[in-house]
């Protein structure tokens, strides 16, 4: 088992990225070599079930998606913060746990506010 951690531990991750990229590049080259290339007006249109394309796809989208994204940023940052704490959970003991519960209570007050505000109501 690994007991000391070195920067070189990250090398395999880079190797894996390179392998993935190489795989895609090779398959793409092969598929472009043996695949046909035929252009036509109808074929290059966006797919809309065979009828005439109406307008542009870049239309406004429901603001709910944006709100969910903002909420995600808040909650995910909070979860990410909790990881270093969880790793040292045993060392921090009871005091660390109480502190984290306090922090979570504050955060959950915000969560309650969000729910009461109706941010997560999708029916409207």
């Amino acid at each position: 088992m690994n007991t000391t951690y070195l920067p070189s531990d990250f090398l395999p991750i880079i190797v894996q990225f390179v392998l993935a990229a190489a795989f895609i590049v090779v398959t793409m080259i092969v598929t472009h070599r043996i695949g046909p290339i035929r252009k036509s007006k109808k074929k290059d249109d966006p797919f809309e079930c065979g009828i005439e394309v109406v307008g542009d796809a870049r239309t406004p989208i429901s603001v709910k998606y944006f709100l969910v994204a903002i909420l995600f940023v808040l909650f995910d940052v909070e979860v990410i913060f909790m990881y270093p704490w969880a790793v040292n959970f045993k060392k921090l003991g009871m005091l660390g746990f109480v502190e984290m519960v306090l922090f979570m209570t504050l955060l959950l007050a915000g969560f309650y506010y969000i729910i009461r505000k109706g941010v997560l109501k999708w029916e409207e």
Binding site: M28, I34, G35, R38, K43, P46
Partner: peptide
């Protein structure tokens, strides 16, 4: 079969 297919990029994309 998929490997032999054309890689289509729509004009609007």
């Amino acid at each position: 079969k998929l490997l032999q297919k054309e890689d289509i990029v729509p004009k609007a994309a």
